[in-house]
Amino acid sequence: MAVIAAGALSLGSWVAQAQADEVVEQIELGLELYQEEEYGAAITELEFAISDMRKLMAARIAETFPAPPDGWSAAEVSTSGGGGAAAMFGGGGSMLEREYRQDGGEGRLTAKLMIDNPMIQAMSAMFNNPALIAAQPNMERIRIGRESAILKWDPDNGSAEASFLMDGRILMQVDGSRLESEAPAVELLKAWDLDAVREQSAR
């Protein structure tokens, strides 16, 4: 099993390296075209390079998503929204997300991550205003280490939403449904590798 895992890791590294090499070629070609004053072609090559770099960045951030809790299983990290993984970092309004299912039960969790998304600006006021949190039904502040997060829990329908805003531009959120308590959503949010998210999303 360890041999298979090591082989998969090696293959993933090779694919990432091959894509990175392609980015270098695109940048070099874009520079050559720019120096030849073929500006339209240069822009095209550089836009392809930027798109590929965004994909590499998205792949690294996908690795920060938490493993499934005991008694749960998880799907692969995917994208939602109209622009795909690359658009997540280009203002396209997309996000990375991962689905979790309760083994032998009906519980569902969805972990979402957004970076530099316009929606984040709209939510930031909530995180910074205790009065707004207190005014919302079924909403309370929770702790992620020394930092604050927001939990909305509706016991009547078993739905939860745990949200954490980091550095004013990175939103991590866990939505849950058909839950017996808010604990799975809160625990999954707390299990996120925050240091890795901050490192991989640095600009």
Rank of each mutant, 00 (worst) to 15 (best):
G30L: 02
A16H: 12
A18E: 12
P68N: 08
Q17S: 04
R54V: 00
L109P: 05
A111T: 08
E47H: 11
R54G: 02
R54A: 00
I50S: 07
A16K: 10
L31I: 15
N117K: 02
L31M: 12
N117V: 05
L29E: 15
G104F: 07
V77T: 04
Y100A: 08
L29H: 10
K55S: 10
S13H: 09
L46R: 02
Q19V: 13
L29S: 11
A87F: 00
I27G: 04
L31S: 12
R108F: 13
E32T: 09
R54W: 01
S80E: 06
V23E: 00
K112T: 15
M88A: 04
S51M: 10
K112E: 14
G71H: 11
Q121M: 05
I43T: 12
A42V: 06
A59K: 10
T110N: 07
S73K: 13
W14P: 01
S78D: 10
E28W: 01
I120M: 12
A41W: 01
D70R: 11
A75I: 02
W14T: 13
A85M: 07
Q19N: 02
M57D: 02
G81W: 11
I50V: 07
E37L: 08
G71E: 15
A59I: 08
A20I: 09
R98K: 15
V24M: 05
L56W: 04
G92N: 01
W72I: 06
V23T: 04
E22H: 05
I61L: 14
P69C: 15
A62V: 08
A59W: 06
E36G: 05
P68H: 11
M57G: 01
A20M: 07
S51G: 14
G93E: 06
K112N: 15
E99G: 05
V23H: 00
K112Q: 12
E28F: 05
A41L: 07
G93A: 12
M95Y: 03
T110V: 15
T44P: 00
E32M: 12
L113T: 10
T110F: 09
P66S: 12
P69V: 14
A16T: 15
D116C: 05
F89E: 02
G91C: 01
Y39V: 14
L31C: 09
